[in-house]
């Protein structure tokens, strides 16, 4: 467990000035993969873990098996972060998404290693990381532009100024793609937070490593705690809680299991969550990125104000 990380790391013992004792084999430091709630890395409150394996049967890590309570805690964190994040300047959100891309770029090697552990070839892993970085840049650019594209000044017939703008819907619960464990994760998170929402994300069950490492990227990108919360665990256990919660405004589901989709629609009716299924998206292609993904978690708000109408000039039905 974790050996590959150390072996392929560019760091060597000689750098730390302990060269004289280099002959003895150094014990590797294994990474603990924890969950990410409210900007912190707790273990699951349930104390449970699971051991995902790669195709070769190698255990990847002791990964937190998150519980319903973890999810509820994460929703509290996400709701708490919503006011601040949604009222940040769009430009500032753009800067932070760009910063996330920078941080990801800087830790490329680590992500490639983890993806390789999770059965990707080196070439495919490299491609996935590169695309994930580019996708963050893509949505960084949208943060302060999609509003202009999807807004309208409405030419009402009465003497009023009237305009419609998109606003974030609130807290979004995301069941991330199970396959593309980094690119898929980034592709669903980025449009949600670019639009000013906060979210709780359930990472890929079988390939959770880079989701947790991505949380470390988020944590060092000036992204306020609670904006993105990442849990690891089993969708079969957690999905129903993700759509049942009364303080969640929208749900994104990325698999094509029709029973689960039906359950999501049924349960999300409890407080009329907005539901989107991304089960046919190829995240590697151009269809994997567009401002319409941002709009899936936006509301349109229309504002009216009278225009003073002196001596009957204009206006009126």
């Amino acid at each position: 467990m974790g050996k590959a990380i150390i072996k392929k790391s560019s760091l060597s013992i000689s750098e730390n000035g302990l060269e004289k004792r280099a002959s003895s084999k150094r014990l590797e430091v294994l990474k603990t993969y924890k969950i990410y709630i409210g900007g912190q890395f707790p273990r699951t409150e349930s104390g449970r873990y699971y051991q995902p394996e790669n195709a070769a049967g190698k255990k990847l890590a002791n990964v937190c098996l998150s519980s319903r309570k973890d999810f509820r805690d994460a929703v509290v964190a996400a709701r708490g972060a919503f006011g601040g994040w949604s009222s940040r300047a769009a430009f500032n959100r753009s800067q932070i998404l760009y910063r996330m891309a920078e941080m990801l770029e800087g830790r490329k090697a680590q992500f490639i290693e983890e993806l390789v552990q999770q059965d990707a070839t080196k070439a495919k892993a490299e491609k996935e990381v590169n695309l994930a970085i580019d996708r963050l840049i893509y949505y960084a650019g949208w943060c302060d532009k999609f509003q202009q594209l999807f807004s309208a000044v409405n030419p009402v017939a009465s003497s009023h100024f009237n305009f419609s703008v998109p606003e974030p819907t609130g807290v979004v619960a995301v069941i991330a793609p199970q396959g593309d464990s980094l690119l898929g994760l980034v592709s669903v998170i980025a449009p949600v937070i670019a639009g000013g929402n906060t979210c709780v994300v359930l990472a890929s069950e079988t390939k959770p490593l880079c989701a947790v490492t991505f949380a470390e990227v988020l944590n060092s990108s000036d992204l306020p705690g609670g904006v993105v919360n990442i849990l690891t665990g089993k969708p079969a256990e957690l999905t129903s809680w993700f759509v049942d919660h009364m303080d969640v405004n929208a749900t994104l589901y990325c698999e094509n299991d029709s029973d689960t989709q039906k359950m999501i629609r049924e349960k999300s009716a409890s407080n009329l969550k907005r539901v989107s299924f991304y089960d046919k998206i190829n995240w590697y292609s151009e269809e994997g990125e567009s401002p319409y993904f941002i709009m899936d978690t936006q509301e349109i708000k229309t504002t009216w104000h009278p225009v003073e109408n002196i001596a009957g000039a204009g206006g009126g039905y």
Partner: peptide, 21 residues
């Protein structure tokens, strides 16, 4: 979804109408 400032209950075909939550 619809906010009226210094007015209320105005409607127009060009003006989107619908709710949050």
């Amino acid at each position: 979804g619809v906010v009226w400032a210094n007015t209320f209950n105005k409607f127009d075909p060009t003006s989107p109408f619908g709710g949050y939550k």
